[in-house]
């Protein structure tokens, strides 16, 4: 079984870790969209260090060829979490200002509609329920297809029929009638 120290001594490790660090910064920026425009400049350095620390801690590497990938997966989760926390702090500051404050009636109305949507979705058949949830969460049909191993047409039809059911029941309940 490979020992971590041997891998860390490998000159290829630094290059591999550096590429992962760049990739992690890139994917974090892409999934967070405009919100991540200010993604910290030092994120690559932090990721490099974190990857090194993670790999150093491994006493026994069960999957030698993929352990850096595994470390990168964990580091991606951490980077996104850190960035979200930072943005949440910014959002709280904006909310405190009068410009950031939202209309409470509008918020209440949205929340009630959201609860009604949740209740309707819970009554849909399982696959249609998954499709509608993913659609409303912002996933595209092709992403939903991948997510649940459906064909494109199946995913599209489940979304279409599920949303149609949802609209009918909302209308029957007096929303949007």
């Amino acid at each position: 079984m490979s020992q971590p120290s041997q891998s860390l001594a490998d000159p290829g490790f630094e290059q591999l870790a550096r590429r992962y660090a760049r990739l992690i910064r890139s994917v974090a920026t892409r999934v967070a969209g405009g919100e991540a425009a200010t993604l910290a400049e030092d994120v690559e350095q932090r990721v490099m260090l974190a990857l090194w620390q993670q790999v150093s801690r491994e006493q026994e590497i069960r999957h030698p060829a993929s352990y850096v990938y595994r470390a990168a997966v964990r580091e991606t989760v951490r980077v996104l979490r850190q960035e979200r926390r930072r943005r949440e702090i910014d959002a709280v500051a904006a909310e405190a200002s009068s410009e950031g404050r939202k209309n409470p009636e509008e918020l209440l109305e949205m929340r009630e509609m959201g609860n009604r949507i949740q209740a309707i979705i819970a009554e849909l058949p399982p696959e249609r329920r998954r499709a509608v949830r993913a659609h409303l969460a912002g996933f595209a049909v092709r992403e939903i297809m991948e997510m649940y191993d459906w064909s494109y047409n199946r995913a599209r039809n489940l979304v279409g029929r599920g949303v149609r059911d949802l609209r009918r029941r909302l209308e029957a309940g007096g929303i949007g009638a």
Binding site: L16, Y20, L23, I24, V31, V73, T76, V77
Partner: peptide
């Protein structure tokens, strides 16, 4: 949802430089 998307991207692009 963001984390899920990020990990899909990571995987799709990592294999180009990491055989593992």
């Amino acid at each position: 949802g963001q984390t899920y998307r990020a990990l899909r991207l990571l995987r799709s692009e990592a294999c180009a430089f990491d055989p593992g």
